[in-house]
Simulated scan of single mutants.
Amino acid sequence: MKDKLGTIHLGLRLCFMLLIAALATGCVKDDYFTELQEMSVQMDKMCPMVIDGGTRLDSTSAKEAPLTLVYYYTATTASKDALPENIEEVKAQLKKQAQDNLDNASTMEAFRKMDVALTYDYRDKNGEYLFNYTVAPTKK
């Protein structure tokens, strides 16, 4: 399980780095929502994106209030009917890793400055909702 979480975490970092690169190369704007929308459009051009053997990023979206980037994932090997008993623990670990990355990674500084929350929405291989969680920057 740790290997799978590590792989997912690596995939998430790669996605974040792509988004930050898109942000860094764009002109500075006063309208953070418009900028976030543009980042989402650029990211969607690369989707679907295989993150690891069991996770695929399907798309993203931007929400204005509060300013949020939403990642839509499919757990390609999971079925809602056959979730592990410790799914809440898995969700908690993923959320903790995402929060730590948002708060501490240098590549996430732009999101912290813009006060962008990140929502992760997971569906099973059949498109059934599994869970979601949101992290917001605690350091600015």
Rank of each mutant, 00 (worst) to 15 (best):
residue 8 I to L: 10
residue 53 G to I: 05
residue 15 C to V: 07
residue 61 S to G: 04
residue 72 Y to D: 05
residue 135 V to L: 06
residue 70 V to F: 01
residue 17 M to P: 02
residue 130 L to S: 10
residue 31 D to N: 15
residue 97 Q to C: 11
residue 43 M to R: 02
residue 108 M to Y: 06
residue 124 D to Y: 02
residue 57 L to F: 00
residue 100 D to M: 14
residue 43 M to T: 08
residue 105 A to N: 13
residue 93 Q to K: 13
residue 105 A to C: 14
residue 61 S to P: 04
residue 115 D to E: 15
residue 50 V to L: 01
residue 98 A to L: 07
residue 87 I to G: 02
residue 106 S to W: 09
residue 112 R to H: 07
residue 119 T to G: 10
residue 133 Y to V: 12
residue 104 N to E: 12
residue 18 L to W: 08
residue 92 A to L: 09
residue 47 C to H: 02
residue 74 T to E: 01
residue 72 Y to K: 09
residue 45 K to N: 05
residue 140 K to Y: 04
residue 83 L to I: 11
residue 88 E to D: 14
residue 35 E to M: 12
residue 21 A to H: 12
residue 118 L to R: 12
residue 76 T to V: 13
residue 25 T to I: 15
residue 80 K to N: 03
residue 138 T to C: 10
residue 94 L to R: 06
residue 22 A to M: 08
residue 118 L to G: 09
residue 3 D to I: 14
residue 18 L to G: 09
residue 72 Y to Q: 11
residue 74 T to I: 02
residue 109 E to A: 13
residue 105 A to I: 06
residue 36 L to P: 00
residue 118 L to H: 09
residue 100 D to P: 07
residue 127 G to A: 05
residue 25 T to H: 14
residue 81 D to E: 12
residue 125 K to F: 00
residue 102 L to P: 05
residue 7 T to V: 09
residue 13 R to I: 06
residue 129 Y to F: 15
residue 110 A to K: 11
residue 99 Q to H: 10
residue 48 P to F: 01
residue 133 Y to N: 12
residue 40 S to D: 01
residue 13 R to G: 04
residue 40 S to K: 00
residue 24 A to T: 10
residue 111 F to G: 05
residue 43 M to A: 06
residue 90 V to P: 00
residue 2 K to H: 11
residue 44 D to L: 05
residue 123 R to W: 01
residue 90 V to W: 01
residue 123 R to G: 01
residue 118 L to A: 12
residue 102 L to H: 04
residue 130 L to E: 04
residue 97 Q to E: 15
residue 126 N to C: 04
residue 53 G to P: 08
residue 28 V to S: 15
residue 104 N to R: 12
residue 58 D to F: 02
residue 64 E to F: 03
residue 122 Y to H: 04
residue 67 L to Y: 02
residue 99 Q to M: 08
residue 51 I to E: 00
residue 109 E to K: 13
residue 109 E to P: 06
